[in-house]
Design a protein around this nucleic acid. Structure first.
Lengths: 219, 219
DNA sequence: ACAATTTGTGACCGGGTGGTCATATTTTTT
DNA sequence: AAAAAATATGACCACCCGGTCACAAATTGT
């Protein structure tokens, strides 16, 4: 939890602090991320950081919580009832996830790191939470589809959920490998992660959905 | 490249050095891995390391190359011609990959880190090579199967390859999440990565193949 | 206007790092 | 046995880190 000093801070300064801190933690491990670099970039004294947060871990937890909230808002804006079948719903959720990426590239990259790249022992206890959340949401969806008879029932929902989550998250690297999208460059140039390649993305997702459909329909 | 001093080193000492260095780099980022810890563990002087290798990066590259060679030997021991259909071949390759895991847990964990967790800028240029190799091998397989009519032809081989590689590699985390296999504990206790859970693994791979089959057969 | 409180500061601390090099030890050659 | 070459050593260097704290500045309350 941030200290009151940070909460009471001028919103503009608060936003700038968040921006710079997020950039640092999006580009580096917990261990490798440097408070010194953050304050140098911000042009403030190092002591200030410790007026705002207890320590490095406290700051990291705040950033994680913040980004998760932002992302959740995007996802929860899509409602299953509004879609005729699961796959159109899935694509809508995915599209909103991409909007999140486009509009909050640093958040997106940070969460990606937390979910997949991070291995610093100091944050180990806090790593799996959101992955488990995503997994359990998928399990609920899948069980409903299995009952409705649109998904195969010969495999446990938890297994199917694992593969769906994995594939969904892999689209980013597919974009990178097969469509030549350069996330790093887009980031350093301040562009959104997917840059002007929204079309390539749609194409990739379409192909992915075709594969998942075939894999998951009743055999 | 290691210096001659290391090549001429007593094989037993060489092996012990490799073992300890690999454990360090398997458990930590390139940045976080510590030469100081390695020499402390080995009980040798820090200067010795720099008689063996140019610098930290040189050591890392040697370890990477070594582990890749070891793994390749496992994979290339399986020949396509010896199997009637692709899926039995695929399962045999997978089984050998698991043997590699079981018999070289540190190698396996290090390569996993290099392929998925690593983000230290110093090693960035050397990261993608093996992933691209795996991908291109899969593309060749898939194109052959497409010609033979056993795989769907309505999607590009590159997309299917991404799908297969991603799903194949995710089995490890599936084991962790759904079968409760604790890689970290197995490692610290010196056991092989999959511990005594070979049965769970077989089950997971069976499920994986079922999904892949359904996704890839001609629609 | 003054006092009280909150916010900002940056030199400093202990600790860790990769890497060096003059020196000591061991091995090989003569 | 002596000389030469190869190998091992660890104190030391410059650097960076997270975190502290006595003090300065600014804001708020009276």
């Amino acid at each position: 939890m941030p200290k009151e000093t940070f909460i009471n801070l001028d919103p503009q300064k608060q936003a700038r602090f968040l921006e710079v801190a997020l950039a640092e933690f999006a580009t580096n491990d917990f261990q490798a991320a440097s408070i010194t670099r953050i304050v140098r970039e911000l042009g403030i004294a190092k002591g200030s950081v410790y007026q705002y947060f207890e320590d490095k871990l406290d700051l990291w937890l705040y950033l994680k919580n913040h980004c998760e909230q932002v992302k959740r808002a995007y996802i929860e804006a899509v409602h299953r009832e509004a879609y005729a079948d699961f796959w159109s719903y899935y694509q809508a959720v995915y599209a909103n996830g991409v909007h999140f990426d486009l509009e909050n590239p640093r958040c997106s990259q940070f969460l990606f790191r937390v979910g997949f790249k991070e291995s610093s022992p100091q944050v180990q206890p806090y790593l799996n939470s959101w992955k488990e959340q995503a997994q359990s949401i998928f399990v609920q969806w899948i069980e409903q589809e299995q009952v409705a008879g649109t998904f195969r029932r010969d495999l446990p929902a938890s297994i199917i959920a694992h593969f769906m989550v994995t594939m969904s998250l892999s689209v980013a690297s597919l974009m990178h490998e097969n469509y030549g999208v350069d996330f790093e460059r887009n980031l350093t140039e301040g562009k959104p992660l997917f840059g002007a390649d929204a079309e390539a993305l749609q194409h990739a997702v379409k192909n992915l959905v075709q594969l998942l459909r075939a894999a998951l329909k009743p055999q």
